[in-house]
Amino acid sequence: MPEAISRHNGGLMQISSHSSTLVLGIESSCDETGVALVEVGGSLAQPQLLAHALHSQIDMHRAYGGVVPELASRDHIRRVIPLARQVLEQGGRTLEQLNVIAYTQGPGLAGALLVGAGVACSLAAALDKPVLPVHHLEGHLLSPFLSADPPEFPFVALLVSGGHTQLMQVDGVGRYTLLGETIDDAAGEAFDKSAKLMGLGYPGGPALSRLAEFGDAQAYKLPRPLLHSGDLDFSFAGLKTAVLTQVKKLGGQPCDQVWADLAASTQAAIVEVLVKKALKALDATGMKRLVVAGGVGANASLRQELNAACAKRGVRVHYPELHLCTDNGAMIALAAAMRLQAGKAQARKDYAFDVRPRWDLQQFEA
């Protein structure tokens, strides 16, 4: 592979427009260790995912009912190097062929982020390759560009990832305008906390969604907070409280159907708010393209309702592939590659690093 990076003053690196660029991406922000190889530029029409590998810590954390940060960090240390070897072998590439090593700088768990950052910078220093820190949410935001049906700029993005629920206007790489966000619990937290109240274990969101398939979504009249607020902000704390109230009313050991009905009603409330706010954002911006990204974007009910509503309005909806909805290295490698390609970032041979556990996407600086 021809060298796709040229040296600039101060050790800065920038992609050459005449060659393809190979990016190794490392994700370690929470409870998944992800490593991937993405190639971009040159004769490629769009970014190409060559290989990716992911290790989930769900089984380890299940015994504690949630993520234990110290255990998460230690497990990242054990997993990241073997995963890197795996993707290089699967992608048919060598360490020497890498052009850039990208890593998640934030937001996320501080200790977990430090593992990925430390490995990325150490590996880059040993290979004399540049590094590029990546914003975790930008990775989610751009992840649909690796799908079979990639979007085009501009679009409205519904980011529903873990503790984040946001609506963004996306005019291009690094050109993001916040339209609305949650003022308390995010949609993912509403799923997880409601599931915990129902005794569904960890991770709660997927368990609640599976149970909801067998329930009546009209069985319980649960609130839709801020649905008619006139703005594009979200709030799900009140919904969680309403679920708690219903659980207390049920008492004892309700039958499986009762839990299924409550799960279905909870999911319906969350989905209705997300769909109607997304449609309102499309109306406010006049756009005809919607991107949905993040873990909750894998929810089948949300996809069904959004697809139906957007079809009536002539709006195209784009999602990441299902296996790329969760945290993964592919989205980190992709975000780095697209930033470099768009001239929005310069990789650096500067191996001092820090992490940013709390980091607003609009404050992101390359």
Rank of each mutant, 00 (worst) to 15 (best):
M1E: 11
A4Q: 01
S6F: 15
I15Q: 14
S16A: 09
S19D: 08
T21S: 13
T21L: 15
L22F: 05
L22C: 04
V23G: 02
E27F: 14
S28D: 12
S29E: 04
D31E: 11
V35T: 06
G41H: 09
G42Q: 06
Q46V: 05
Q46H: 14
Q48K: 15
L49H: 05
L50S: 09
Q57W: 00
Q57M: 07
M60C: 06
M60S: 10
R62V: 00
Y64C: 05
G65L: 07
G65P: 10
V67W: 07
P69S: 05
P69F: 07
E70M: 06
L71R: 08
R74W: 09
D75K: 04
H76D: 12
R79Q: 15
A84W: 09
E89C: 13
G92R: 09
Q97G: 10
N99C: 09
T104I: 00
T104F: 12
V115Y: 07
G116C: 12
A117W: 01
L127V: 07
K129E: 00
L132Y: 02
V134C: 03
H135A: 04
L137S: 04
E138H: 07
L142F: 11
L142V: 05
S143C: 14
L146Q: 08
S147V: 12
A148F: 07
P151G: 12
E152D: 15
V156A: 06
L158H: 05
L159I: 15
V160D: 12
Q166Y: 10
Y176V: 01
F191Q: 04
D192A: 05
K193C: 03
A195Q: 09
G199K: 07
G201F: 03
P203N: 09
G205K: 12
P206Q: 03
P206K: 08
A207M: 13
L208Q: 04
S209G: 06
S209I: 01
S209V: 01
L211P: 07
A212Y: 00
A212R: 04
D216C: 04
Q218E: 15
L222P: 05
R224V: 10
D231C: 14
F234A: 14
A237S: 15
T245D: 10
K248L: 06
L250T: 01
L250E: 14
L250I: 02
C255S: 13
D256S: 12
Q257D: 08
A264V: 01
A264P: 02
T266A: 02
I270S: 03
V271C: 05
V271R: 02
E272G: 00
V275T: 10
K277E: 14
R289E: 09
V291Q: 12
V292I: 13
L302D: 02
Q304F: 09
A309I: 10
A309D: 05
A309C: 07
C310P: 07
A311V: 01
R313T: 03
R313C: 08
R313V: 09
G314K: 15
V315C: 13
R316H: 13
Y319W: 13
Y319P: 02
L324V: 11
L324N: 06
T326H: 07
D327S: 10
I332Q: 08
M338R: 13
R339T: 08
R339H: 03
G343A: 03
K349Y: 00
K349T: 15
D350Q: 10
D354F: 06
P357A: 11
W359L: 14
W359R: 05
W359G: 09
E365I: 14
A366C: 05
